[in-house]
Simulated assay, not measured.
Amino acid sequence: MRHVLVTGGSSGIGLAVADLLLERGDRVSLVARDAERLAEAARTLSRGEEARAGRIFIVPADVADGEAVSRAAEKATSRFGVIGALVASAGIVEPARFLEQDAAAFDRQISVNLTGVSNSVRAVLPGMRGKGGSVMIVSSGAGLIGIPGYSAYCASKFALRGLAAALRAEMASAGISVSICFPPDTLTPQLERELPLRPPEAQAMIGRVRPQETAIVARAILAGMDRGRREIHFGLALRLLGYFGPFAASYFDLRRGGRPRTG
Rank of each mutant, 00 (worst) to 15 (best):
M1T: 10
M1L: 08
V4L: 08
L5V: 06
L5I: 06
G8I: 02
G9K: 01
G9E: 04
S10W: 03
L15M: 12
L20H: 13
E23Q: 12
R24P: 07
R27L: 11
S29R: 02
S29P: 10
L30W: 04
V31Y: 07
R37E: 10
L38W: 03
L38Q: 00
L38F: 04
A39T: 14
A41K: 00
R43G: 13
T44F: 15
S46T: 03
E50V: 12
A51G: 14
R52D: 09
A53S: 13
G54T: 06
I58G: 01
V59I: 10
V59K: 06
P60G: 06
A61H: 06
A64Y: 02
E67D: 15
V69R: 00
R71A: 09
A73C: 08
R79N: 04
F80V: 08
V82W: 04
G84L: 04
L86H: 00
I92M: 08
P95H: 06
P95K: 02
A96V: 05
R97G: 11
F98I: 12
F98N: 03
L99G: 11
E100N: 11
Q101S: 14
Q101I: 10
D102A: 04
A104V: 09
A105K: 15
F106I: 13
D107A: 12
D107C: 06
D107Y: 12
Q109C: 09
T115N: 15
G116R: 01
G116E: 02
V117W: 08
V117I: 12
S118G: 05
S118D: 14
N119K: 06
V121D: 02
G127T: 10
G127Q: 09
S134P: 08
V135E: 01
I137G: 00
I137W: 01
L144G: 02
L144T: 04
G146K: 03
G146N: 07
G149W: 04
Y150W: 09
Y153W: 06
Y153Q: 02
C154T: 07
C154I: 03
A155H: 04
S156G: 07
K157E: 09
A159F: 05
L160M: 09
R161S: 08
L163H: 02
L163F: 13
A165G: 13
A166D: 09
A166P: 10
A166S: 12
L167K: 02
L167Y: 05
E170S: 12
S173I: 07
I176R: 00
V178I: 09
V178M: 06
I180N: 00
C181K: 00
C181R: 01
P183I: 08
P184L: 14
L187S: 10
T188C: 07
Q190F: 15
L191H: 08
L191M: 15
E192F: 13
P196W: 15
L197F: 15
P199W: 04
E201G: 05
Q203F: 11
M205D: 01
R208N: 15
E213G: 14
T214M: 07
A215H: 08
I216H: 12
V217K: 01
A218Y: 06
L222R: 00
L222F: 11
D226C: 10
D226M: 11
R230F: 13
R230D: 15
I232D: 01
I232K: 00
F234R: 01
G235N: 02
A237C: 09
A237D: 15
R239A: 14
L241Q: 00
F244C: 07
P246Y: 06
F247T: 14
F247I: 14
A249M: 08
S250E: 11
G257F: 11
P260F: 15
R261F: 10
R261C: 03
